[in-house]
Structures are given as C-alpha cells and as structure tokens.
C-alpha cells in the first residue's frame, strides 16, 4: 500500500506532515473533547437503553391490571382462551405451547441445514464462490415477512393440501417451514462466524494428523465451535418465537395443543399471533387488552431467558477461543 492510497482511505490522520508536539491549547482542547465526547457517547448510548426501558415499562404497566386481577397460575396453566366471552377465560397454555412447538419444529428443519450451509461457506468453498453464495442467504433475510406470509397462505397451503392430503394447509408444518426459512439466515451467519473464528491452527493440526476434511470438521471443528453454534441456534429460536405476521397467516390459529404431539398437520396458535390478531379489536382498558400485554410480558421474559442462554454460550465460545 503506497502513501497516496493510505491518505485516500484513512483521511487526514494519515497525513504525516503535522507537528508532533501540540501547543498547550491544542492539548487542552483535545483533552476536553475527549471527555465531552465520552460523556456524549454515554448519553446517546443511554438514550437507546432508555428507549428499551420505556418499552419494557410500557408493556409491563399495561399488563398490570390483568396480572393483579387474575391468578398467574391460571394464566400459565389454563387451556381455555376465551377472551371475548361473557365469562372470559385467559388460559395461556395452548398459545405458549404453540409458540414453543412451531419454533422447535422450525429449528428441526433449520438447524441441520443451517450448520451444513455454515460449514460449506466457511470450510469448503473458495472465497470467490462464497461471495456468490452469501447473497442468497442475505436475500432470504431481506424478503419482508408480509411476502413470506403471502407465500404461506396462497402457495404453500393449497399445495400441501393437494399433495399431502392434509385437511388443512395452514398448520404447524406450514408455519414451521416458513419460520425455518426465516431463521436460517441468522443461524447461518452466526454459526459461520463461530466456525471461521476458530483459526487455521486447529484445522492444520487435524489435517497434519492425516484426518480427512469430513473428520476434521465433524470431530474437531464443530466440537470446538459448539458454543457458538448453540448461540446461533438460540438466536434462530428467538427469531422464530418473535415473528408475528407470518405465523398469524400460516399457522391456522386454532387454540389447541397438537394431539398426538408429533402431528404437524394440525393448526396451532402462537403468542405473537394472538397479540397481533386480537389487539386491534380489544377495547381500550378491558382486561382482554391487558391480558394481551401480559402475553407480551411473557414473550419478553422468554426472549430474555433465551438471551441469557445465548450470551452464556457466546462468551464461552470467546473464552474457548482465547484458550486455543
């Protein structure tokens, strides 16, 4: 890199014609700038944190009337969700199970595929091909959820009814497949980061011992990167649990727990879909509305827990990396 290019890229700091000794004024200015800047940065960062806290506060406050009036045990374990009936029942078990059910089902599809794709991108193809393939993943992430919803209802649902003989096409399988596609970009990019962050030494040592590429990847690379991969899975799960519009359109929204449990062809309802579907019509100030906010709080708690889990695994991945 010659000098001209450097100037072009890095701007005035790379010009070496400045005096090395600063005047006291410049020194003081720099000092103040440094501290003021730091305080400013902190304030701005805090403003985004403030926003987060405001949202949390907002959701929790709106759910308080419900949480004080109804027993939380009934909310968590009750199966009946009849918010608009004369004797309303707010049993959230079916929708909690529904959320977990589709998310897990989505992971069953997405995780093997995502890890394989991550391995492929990091260890198998050349840099050039990788640059061609990577946009595919990015485009998958870029397609808006409304478009996925359309696809689920208008293309996938009739197709499944026709070819699999399901009585209904908008079901857990439909929602899970779409969610899997939506979670894949997250899983792939985080897992790929984790795998490629491992460095050459580990791989070279394995190859040096005479292992094939498959053996290296399966027995050395993946076990070494397992923390990062778990974090990828958890982040993918977060994406799947939080998705709203698609599940609202694709899952059928029946308030039931699938029976038998492995039958994906039944309709189910998730927490996000319940919020999205019922919020618009629930009267302001009713227990129905605050019950929906309570569902939101529950959702936040779930993502919070998942978050802690992923943070734990990610920091472990970093530590492992430090050690190796």
């Amino acid at each position: 890199m010659d000098n001209k290019d450097l100037t072009l890229t890095l701007g005035p700091a790379a010009e070496f014609n400045r005096p090395l000794v600063l005047t006291p004024g410049q020194d003081l200015f720099g000092f103040i700038l440094n501290h003021v800047g730091r305080a400013l940065l902190f304030l701005i960062t805090c403003s985004s944190v403030l926003a987060v806290l405001l949202i949390l506060f907002f959701v929790i406050v709106r759910s308080v009337p419900f949480l004080t009036d109804y027993s939380i045990a009934d909310f968590l374990a009750g199966k009946a969700w009849h918010p608009t009936s004369d004797t309303p029942a707010f049993g959230g078990l079916t929708i909690i199970v529904g959320s977990l059910y589709v998310s897990l089902a989505a992971l069953v599809f997405a995780v093997p595929l995502g890890i394989m794709a991550a391995v492929f991108l990091s260890d198998i193809v050349s840099w050039k091909i990788r640059n061609v393939v990577k946009p595919i993943v990015e485009i998958l992430a870029a397609i808006p959820s409304v478009a996925y919803g359309f696809f689920a209802v208008l293309v996938l649902a009739p197709w499944m009814q026709k070819h699999f003989g399901f009585s209904t096409g908008t079901n857990a399988l439909n929602a899970a497949l779409i969610l899997a596609v939506m979670a894949l970009p997250t899983i792939i990019s985080v897992a790929e980061d984790a795998i490629s962050a491992l460095g050459r030494e580990l791989r070279e040592a394995s190859y040096g011992l005479g292992a094939t590429r498959m053996e290296t990847i399966l027995k050395v690379v993946l076990p070494a990167a397992h923390s990062g991969i778990i974090a990828a899975v958890v982040l993918g799960m977060m994406r799947a649990i939080g998705e709203t519009m698609v599940v609202w359109m694709a899952s059928g929204n029946a308030t039931q727990i699938p029976h038998p449990w492995w039958d994906l062809s039944q309709s189910i309802r998730t927490m996000t879909a319940t919020i999205a579907g019922e919020m618009g019509e629930a009267p302001e100030g009713s227990s129905h509305r605050s019950a929906l906010f309570a569902v939101g709080v529950l959702l936040l708690i779930m993502t919070f827990v998942l978050n802690i889990v992923s943070e734990y695994f990610l920091s472990r991945a970093k530590k492992n990396l430090g050690r190796s």
Partner: peptide, 28 residues
C-alpha cells in the same frame, strides 16, 4: 379470529355466546 366484528356477530347470533371447540381454525 375471535376479535373481529364478523366473529362477534356469528358468536352472538349463531353460537348464542357458547364457546367454539379447540380444533376450530381461525383466519384473520
């Protein structure tokens, strides 16, 4: 879906405010 006006009409006039079965599929 249980919050639409269409549902409310149906629920009041046909269902006589009785609850629907769990297997009913809801569309928005």
């Amino acid at each position: 879906d249980t919050s639409s006006g269409t549902y409310e009409t149906f629920h009041g006039l046909v269902m006589e405010k009785k609850e629907m079965a769990a297997g009913v599929e809801y569309v928005n």
